[in-house]
């Protein structure tokens, strides 16, 4: 805790933080309120309360757009992508942290290089690669997400480094295989890190816009983020903003709920595993 703030400083901090927090929340309330209005009501005044709370826009958002199918795609993609990424990252980190072999350092270094060289230009070859391999679809996306050498690996790595090896040794003596030791003993011990990494990864995949926007060409098979963007583009051609607002609320609700439930876990995950210090 250390030294407490004096009254004026505390007041100033509270006021500023409240203003900031309000600016983060208020736009959603604005969108929420306007999502109950009719189109012409919205254009008359964007500030008034709706004449009546009716859910026409929500019904339209669900019916006229592919919202439900966006959700389906997003859910499937998020689950598969997250599971693969977490397992790949944990596996790689475990091997690099606990086994000594030639090339260990090299492989770890390979993962680190990605953090230090800002590669912004690989889009062209990626595009051509996807074209040549026909991976312009959800499978391509899953393959791209199934990486084991990213930030998540580094988080797991520092976590596994801290876990004592004695349990594993005991298991080895009992004749357990390498895989069994990893899967049944060591991986469960990294539970805290796994939960935090899983939540963060899931949120990232759920919210990812750029990769799906490039890879998913079928308008029926879009993620929520990309689908919303196309809805936004579509609004430029039929001007039913209030329907878009309803869609925004529908799309945001699940993440907000999950966040409220898991908020402590996320913070804790960063406290324990954390990014390396």
């Amino acid at each position: 805790m250390g030294r407490k703030f004096s009254k004026p400083v505390l007041l100033l901090a509270e006021v500023l933080l409240f203003a900031y927090a309000l600016s983060l929340i208020f736009p959603y309330i604005w969108v929420l309120i306007n999502s109950f209005k009719t189109v012409s009501e919205f254009y008359n005044s964007t500030w008034s309360l709706p004449e009546k709370f009716d859910f026409t826009n929500y019904a339209r958002a669900l019916k006229e757009t592919n919202m439900l199918s966006y959700f389906k795609t997003s859910i499937i993609l998020t689950i598969i992508g997250t599971v693969l990424q977490v397992i790949c990252s944990a596996g790689t980190a475990y091997i690099l942290a606990k086994y000594k072999f030639r090339g260990n350092k090299l492989i770890y270094g390979m993962a680190i290089v990605g953090f230090l060289i800002p590669t912004s230009g690989t889009l062209a070859p990626l595009y051509v690669f996807l074209k040549d391999t026909g991976l312009f679809n959800i499978y391509g996306l899953v393959v791209m997400y199934a990486t084991g050498m990213g930030t998540n690996m580094v988080i797991f790595y520092s976590f596994f480094k801290k876990i004592s090896w004695s349990y594993a040794e005991a298991a080895f003596i009992d004749g357990a295989s390498d895989f069994k030791v990893f899967w049944k003993i060591m991986f469960p011990m990294a539970r805290e890190a796994t939960i935090a990494v899983t939540i963060i990864t899931a949120i990232n995949i759920w919210n990812d816009y750029f990769l799906p926007s490039i890879l998913l060409t079928n308008p029926e098979l879009q993620t929520v983020a990309v689908g919303l963007r196309s809805l936004q583009v579509q609004q430029q051609y039929n001007a039913t903003w209030t329907v878009l607002f309803a869609a925004v609320i529908i799309a945001t609700l699940p993440t907000i709920l999950i966040y409220i439930i898991f908020q402590d876990r996320i913070a804790k995950g960063f406290l324990i595993g954390g990014l390396k210090e």
Binding site: Y20, L24, W30, I203, N207, Y209, V226, Q232, T252
Partner: peptide
């Protein structure tokens, strides 16, 4: 509240 921008898609954030 401060963490909210990280859990909502940038598409929605920029839209709002």
């Amino acid at each position: 509240v401060l963490f909210i921008p990280n859990i909502i898609s940038i598409v929605i954030l920029t839209m709002v």
